[in-house]
Write a protein that binds this DNA or RNA. Structure first.
Lengths: 238, 238
DNA sequence: AAGCTGTCAAGAGCACTGCTCTCGTTTCAT
DNA sequence: ATGAAACGAGAGCAGTGCTCTTGACAGCTT
């Protein structure tokens, strides 16, 4: 993080020790973040856990924010990876099936890494401003979804109703997305796609933040039902 | 908060001063929370703003968490109030119209009080655990929504498809909600209601957390479109 | 009117945070 | 072998929530 690697072929003992320690710091930070939340991540606590003094950690990590950023990129990259894996695994299936697989993959990741989820989709940590580098994995995740939709449209799985009138400014936004994703998805379908996409994260937010407590006892079954409905919405002309 | 009021009819000068200062503390805290986020709320900063020393604030507020709780209840009560107001204002309209009005009211509140939104629906503040008292306004908000749905079912605005098979555990959960809300809403409709409800908060979360930046330039138009779609989903049998 | 009681603002202090700087030491490359 | 770079440790600054003590004052009772 702080310094440049030497260009020697064989990594020196120091370099290896450095890589090792950097990894340990990230691991400890990840553990703490998972346990006490991202906002409570403390460099001093990380240092304590590793049996070193706080200032020593700064040899490996420039700042708390930089560490946070690294964790975001790693953690969220994992989400994008999981999504892409589910994508390729069900690539031959219909659009509805693929969407459900994708949604379940994202949920599994979110349940396993709630802190990462909050870091990207939740309220931002007070002093922390997520740098541009963090949007790359988010974009990858979104594009995975858009690809499912585009394929569904191409294969005819997703009905393309043209009735719904799309307001002018939204049409402009949608046109840009089409261009960016290089996918020919009609405004109506794009709007349905946004609907199920935001619904997914709304449902995850509710589940992760305990909003379902005392209301829904079986979140798994509930989520599955919800996502089946959303798949139907995505596929069927409204 | 800390001490008991005297039982005298006319409030003494001291009691009035106390009430006044308590209000000022809450106001200042609310301002700070709106500006820097809930997690960054600092009692010392509040004290500074009011020109007093930090320890003096503890005469009026037991702890930072208690202050946070008070702000949640107040702020979220406002949301429930706004929702109920929109409810009574459009009580004679159809279910779709009422739902759209309710959604817009909730969005308006969320945009005006993003910190409160995060405090209730976002990632919890590190050390803070929301006490039970805070769920009362949340429940009020949910019940307002359920009433709209129940009325829509009763009036025939909301189609009651019975085809969709609901898993056993979810059926049990739904039955309890029916009983709790004293509303006769079929499983299928209830499931649709959950869908649009979570979609609403997913959309708000995306908008409030900047997830739409560079993607959607006109959030107002976009939200309106989304909520029209969700109204259609709520009303139409899937 | 005097005195007692409880409330008040203020300050010092504890343990914690992120972060910087300095100081010797160790390691590596030349 | 020597000089530079990297390193761990420690002190220190400014900030946080919160507690305890102190001295001043208001309001009620006698």
């Amino acid at each position: 993080m702080t310094t440049e690697e030497t260009t020697s072929r064989v990594p020196t003992a120091r370099a290896r020790a450095r890589a090792e320690l950097t990894r340990e710091i990230k691991d400890a930070a990840r553990r703490q973040m998972a346990e006490h939340g991202a906002a409570a991540l403390s460099l001093r606590a990380v240092a304590r856990e590793l049996g070193m003094v706080s200032s020593a950690v700064y040899r490996y990590v420039a700042s708390r924010d930089e560490l946070l950023t690294a964790l975001i990129i790693d953690g969220f990259g994992a989400a994008a990876d999981a999504a892409e894996a589910s994508e390729t695994a069900s690539a031959r299936a219909g659009a509805a099936t693929r969407w459900m697989a994708l949604a379940h993959a994202i949920r599994a990741w979110a349940l396993a890494n709630p802190a990462d989820f909050d870091l990207v989709f939740g309220s931002p940590v007070p002093g922390y401003q997520a740098p541009v580098a963090t949007i790359e994995p988010v974009e990858r995740l979104s594009l995975t979804f858009i690809r499912v939709v585009a394929d569904g449209v191409a294969s005819g799985d997703i009905a393309t109703d043209s009735i719904t009138s799309i307001p002018r400014p939204v049409h402009t936004d949608f046109a840009r997305i089409r261009e960016l994703a290089r996918a020919d998805i009609s405004d109506a379908v794009l709007s349905r796609a946004f609907l199920v996409w935001t619904q997914l994260f709304g449902a995850l937010s509710f589940e992760l933040h305990g909003q379902l407590h005392g209301v829904i006892d079986d979140p798994d079954a509930f989520f599955d039902l919800q996502i089946r409905r959303s798949a139907h919405i995505l596929v069927t002309a409204g």
